[in-house]
Design a protein around this nucleic acid. Structure first.
Lengths: 132, 132
DNA sequence: GCTTGACCTTCCAGTAACTGGAAACACTAT
DNA sequence: ATAGTGTTTCCAGTTACTGGAAGGTCAAGC
């Protein structure tokens, strides 16, 4: 399996597949005689795992941790749950921030007539923070 | 007003204030005889404007646009509203993504006993995408 | 006048996680 | 033989800063 087949199977760009091996996130693949990278099912499964974890917003360094646990037959669920719960808390926080951002900006957009006149509550609203 | 006073007034690190002038986002400030940057109220107002816009998630390039409109006495509300509405749509999309991410990860965390046993729904759930 | 310390300057490098592109080699089909 | 596609390495660029080194400036205290 050359890199483009593996990258298609994993759902990642070939560049990214190379990159993940370069930084040691996944093991460097075997090479053909001519130097082509050669992938098997196990490598692809790891790449899928990493892609999924990245989609969940885990950082590369968290992916390293998770991948370690993924490969370790003796890992406890507790370790994994700890990392996932931390990530979940970050997501919840991000959601709250995004919500207040949305509300504030939506308020400004609503207050803006959107016509040709220079008077604009959005610009005014960006100029100074209101209480809250 | 030296840079640290201006940066405090604007609510930005001094490094960032320098950076914004370096990339031409705000005009380069006047200099004292000894080469110190010297800020006035107008520069500070612009910096506050940029800080606020950045807090709203506008990119530097969008800030450039908005700042241009902010400074242009003849700008129409429509221009500003268009940029803000686009940003609002992006925020809404991000919110939806974050929500499904949250739900899926929360589901996995709930399904995990979090004990010492190696059986772990989170790890399993990262390995393959379920329908949905 | 001299020192101390805070503040200022420029410049270079690093961060996260890739992505784009050039130059050159390998493989396949015609 | 040649064309076209796939692959390799390596370097640079992206975004929006941030950290740090080396050195100049200013005000206060002795």
């Amino acid at each position: 399996m050359n890199i483009s087949a593996a990258s298609k199977a994993a759902g990642l760009p070939a560049k990214t597949v190379r990159y993940y091996a370069d930084i040691g996130l996944v093991p460097a693949p075997a090479r053909s005689e001519s130097g082509y990278r050669s992938y098997d099912g196990a490598s692809v499964r790891k790449l899928v795992f990493v892609r999924r974890a990245r989609e969940f917003g885990f950082s590369i360094s968290e992916c390293r941790e998770l991948l370690g646990l993924y490969e370790d037959r003796r890992r406890s669920s507790a370790d994994v749950k700890r990392i996932a719960a931390r990530r979940l808390a970050e997501i919840a926080l991000k959601q709250k921030e995004l919500q207040s951002l949305h509300d504030e900006l939506a308020h400004l957009v609503d207050a803006c007539r959107g016509d040709d006149r220079p008077d604009c509550p959005i610009i005014d609203g960006l100029g100074a923070r209101r209480a809250g």
